[in-house]
Amino acid sequence: MNLILSRPNISISSLYVWQRHRDVFFKIWKTESLGIGLEPWIVILAMGFGLGQFVTLDSGEKYVQFLAPGLMAMFPMFAAIFECGWGAFMRISMHGTYEAILNTPASIEDITTGDILWGTTRATLNATYILIVLLILNHWTDAVNSPYAIGIVFVAILQGFLFSSIAIAFAALARAMSHFGYLFNIIVMPMFWLSGGFFPINELPEWAQNIAWFLPLIHSVELNRALLNGNLTLNMIGDFFWLAIVAIAFYAIALVLMRRRLIV
């Protein structure tokens, strides 16, 4: 118990762990990037323009305009969760990568933190890329309407850290690959559909709206929406703080669960 509650032991080694992930990414990005690169184009075309033809919104905006802030929250979330969920699980349970790193001066907290920082990086790259795609298509989408849109990168960092922490906390608990079904179906998918990214949630029953506001993803969508439209409000402070509080809480939980998992 003392070990679990002891002060986190974080050092420069977490950067070395991050660098390991970066090096692996540079190794594989050529094969992976085609899929990742095409994804937002396809989604914007299919959902924004295809589905968008059949959707009329009360606000009068185009559906692709409504969808854009959600994409920049949801795809980075998936990036972080894949990297720190499945990825970390394989490194812990199947490849022994964590065990190998723990034999060097790196601590459990360093490894956890390095992984979370890498998940954050992937999420941020992902959001930035979608922003670029939207800028390229902006003539048709009118999705990016303010220079404040650059702030989306910072939202991505914050939520990347948050979702990476959630995923790694789960990876520390999971005992089999199949357990990730719980993470996906009980946490990620409901959050995804209740985020207000695909459809406005104000038509939903009140209980569903209450749950939605409690979940973090909707707050990144709201922040992105305000930044894309240059429509800054005081609500953003609340969104920001909620994301930050949940991020810090799950980071702490991730550290504790990883210690519990790896110290025998």
Binding site: S13, Y16, R20, H95, T97
Partner: peptide, 23 residues
């Protein structure tokens, strides 16, 4: 270690380079 825990995502030389960096 008893179990082979080389980094499967990296080739031989890079396995060593990345590992040396942890020190």
């Amino acid at each position: 270690p008893q179990n082979d825990n080389l980094d499967p995502d990296l080739p031989v030389k890079q396995n060593l380079e990345v590992y040396a960096r942890y020190y």
